[in-house]
Design a protein around this nucleic acid. Sequence first.
DNA 1: GTCTATATTCAGATAGAC
DNA 2: GTCTATCTGAATATAGAC
Lengths: 220, 220
Amino acid sequence: MVKPAGRQKKVAAAPDPHTEQRILDAAHVVFIRRGTAGARMQDIADEAGVNKALLHYYFRNKNRLAEAVFQGVTSRIFSRLSETLGSDAEIEDKVRRIVAIYIDQLSKTPYVPAYVISELNQHPERTKQFFESVRSPGAKGPPPFLLKLGEQIQAGVRAGTMRAIPPGQFIANIASLCVFPFAAKPMLCTLLDLDDRGFKAFIEERKTGLPEFFLSGLRP
Amino acid sequence: MVKPAGRQKKVAAAPDPHTEQRILDAAHVVFIRRGTAGARMQDIADEAGVNKALLHYYFRNKNRLAEAVFQGVTSRIFSRLSETLGSDAEIEDKVRRIVAIYIDQLSKTPYVPAYVISELNQHPERTKQFFESVRSPGAKGPPPFLLKLGEQIQAGVRAGTMRAIPPGQFIANIASLCVFPFAAKPMLCTLLDLDDRGFKAFIEERKTGLPEFFLSGLRP
DNA sequence: GTCTATATTCAGATAGAC
DNA sequence: GTCTATCTGAATATAGAC
């Protein structure tokens, strides 16, 4: 444990970013597992290996802690995404990249989709917070990457290589196909009679099958 | 209010199915809005227009009430579904029907997907309950409609009208495309800048666009 | 900054009258 | 069967020592 030099050991130290981060990580784990309403401050304290009172010292109350966690999760998800969609790459290329990014990311954090979905449904007021993480603050109207996508689709239609599809539907389709299987993992595993290994294989299979399916769906 | 004839008015009556149903309906509303952990017995009582104690009289405790609601929701969802998938209809026909059924149903109960997703993630033990509502109790291995679907796909591949796709992926794709937009409604509305009317229009547009997209995705 | 101990609030559950 | 009143336990939050 490195300490700032020249400090008397009895003087109260400044907020320890290390501890704060440990608490945040612990809260992340517990909130995602149990949902915000089902999570217990005690469980978070245990997970972080600190005392319950310390959570309040750093985050004041449960709600603020929940917001901090939610903020962290959503910003991580969408940072690379809108970049990719808004780039100048060919549509085929975008699709392949998006699928790869989503599936790799979600394979590591499979609980995230269900967490975000239930949070946003139970706390509509956090939609605003979500909004800020997706777009630049204060922006109005459809986000830039939608316009870009719309142009590319129209070009494809004129060239005769694509069916016409509204960009919003395009986004909804690709997001659905990538995210839903993780959000509905318990359902899918029951329905298709998969254990955890089976699910992993199922997702692996999807990594190549999904771009094929999606791109084929776009052709005229 | 019709009462059984020949009863003295002071004799305790049998459980009133009317009241029980009112409570169940109220619980349905509250659990789906707030999630099981976030729901309050008091709110359910208010919604039903009865006293809190009565909930315990009919359902003993919160957990049993939650199970009853969950049971009701899931059984309603999947009853018509496995029928349709397991029937002898052509694949094209099945796809169109499934999309129509799902979207009509979910348009009336848009909160259901997020509810089921978060319940199943937070209470893995209910997966068994879910299981029973989808298949006949005690069944082993992949459910019959999967086999049926697999045969039809193989026939299509031999005839040269379809690409090869595992039936499990087929199911995952169609479920994703139908259900996810409702589960992620707040996200989608933010991302695509839609209000409630806009979302309704978006779904309407999907009703015809989705079968086209999906069927095109199946072609070789 | 971190802990122990305690206060407070709230929600699930029960007892008992009607 | 339905209500009022109450109990109990749990969980968030605070006070204060170290």
